[in-house]
Design a protein around this nucleic acid. Sequence first.
DNA 1: TCCCATTATGCTTAAGTGCC
DNA 2: GGCACTTAAGCATAATGGGA
Length: 302
Amino acid sequence: MMHPVYLPFSEEQLLSHFTDINKNGRCVKNVKHLRYYKQSIERYVNYLKNNPIARGKPLKDTRTPCQIEKDERFWTASCLMTIFYSQHRAVDLTKLFIKAYGNTPPLKGVNSWEECLEGELHLFLKPNLPSPESYKRWLRENLTKRHFIPHVLNSADGKVNLEGPTNVDAMFLNSKNGFAVIIEAKVLSDISYDVTYDTIRNQIARNVDVMLEENRKLCPPLNKRDPEKTLFLLITPKLFRDNPSSRLYGYKMREYKTNPESLAADLPHRSCNWEEISKRLGWLTWEDFKDVNKNCCLWLNK
DNA sequence: TCCCATTATGCTTAAGTGCC
DNA sequence: GGCACTTAAGCATAATGGGA
């Protein structure tokens, strides 16, 4: 077990949730991810051992060694793996999806959550999803409408790709039927708004954009994902869902849910049935996961 | 086809700034 | 002078494109 509270799983288990990567046209295992988790756990354990009294400790001493307490990588891996390895995985996930999206999946031709989950479910941490070709073309044609700093505009000259892949925090994927949930997880931080060449673009819009794009070239089973059967899920602390105006994502989620056409404004290169897309956006809290499965987020046991 | 430098995102971490 | 807050730098991973 890597850590009893923040990552109660083995290294092998954790490693199995990272996607294969494309190296010289071949899909190969990637083993690089472990080091970050192991180092962070080691810093934390050592710090606690040498500093048994926590009260009154200044932030400058604790911030780095105690990063794990607020690290979204750990929150995400730990919480989602707990659900993934739960003996009642399908029941747990169904409860969560009903809370986020309603009694029936907001997907055409899909009648039940059971149908979504039947088959072969995978959980991936930190998968990369390429920026859609249609967006990159559009940005190339509209660059000066989206940026205004000379040296940035100059650097775009001659570049093929004006946006890199979006690294989503996690993804559930059913490789039998293409059903997927793309997950953006937050602890204290807000969504990103600072990609290189588009000052208007926000992280949720990017997530929705890559959700709507096929990924035929990605390593299996990521290439099996059906964009028409993919949902977007935001996971945050309950505190910020109760106080949505404390974060940019609070404003954006409310806007996208109550006024679907606002998605069109943020994704001008696409024409979609935005009302339908809007229904595919969900927001859950870490506390929701804990309500469904007590073993989730053990650090919230206070 | 392979290698490798470059560059993208998405964070964490360190350095700089200024308040009490 | 010791902090917390703010901003910049740094790091990790992975994709990409050019050259051998």
